[in-house]
């Protein structure tokens, strides 16, 4: 069941990305380009997602456990440390260069020609490289 639910939930996530055009790097870069022809759409996407998740999490986390698992897996770290900030800063540079983050990269690969695949291959290399760098 948890495999089927993962697929359906991934599909809903992907539909959200397609409907909001967040799989189009041009649209992402137009949001990030505040000195150009600015497109604030991403703020609305994030705001709507945040409000929905904020309300939904409160209802869900009041329950004892999730439907298909024995417990909730919530991150427990609370310290704002160097890896967090350096990682986020590097992530942002990559996001600005490519106009894609990981989720939209996967969804864009289905209909976006070869460039998203090149992006995903590079992303996989970058992810694996993390283990070899001490920060």
């Amino acid at each position: 069941m948890r495999i089927l639910s993962s697929f359906v939930i991934g599909l809903i996530f992907g539909l959200g990305l397609v409907v909001s055009q967040m799989i189009n790097p041009q649209k992402i870069v137009a949001f990030l380009d505040i000195a150009g022809n600015w497109d604030p759409s991403l703020i609305v996407v994030m705001g709507a997602a945040l409000v929905t998740t904020f309300i939904g999490y409160r209802l869900v986390l009041a329950r004892e456990k999730p439907l298909f698992e024995e417990g909730f897996q919530i991150p427990t770290k609370t310290v704002i440390d160097r890896p967090l900030l350096i990682g986020a800063a590097i992530f942002g540079v990559g996001w600005g260069l490519a106009g894609l983050c990981p989720g939209p990269g996967i969804t864009a690969a289905a209909v976006g020609g070869l460039a998203p695949w090149a992006y995903l291959a590079a992303m996989a290399v970058g992810m694996q490289a993390r283990a070899f760098v001490k920060v």
């Binding site: 809903i12 996530f13 409907v19 709507a48 929905t52 939904g56 999490y57 209802l59």
Partner: peptide, 19 residues
Amino acid sequence: VGGVLIGLSAVLFMALNGR
């Protein structure tokens, strides 16, 4: 609309898979 779908997906993932 897309943002609500993304949020719905996040909520369902927590409700069903706890993640």
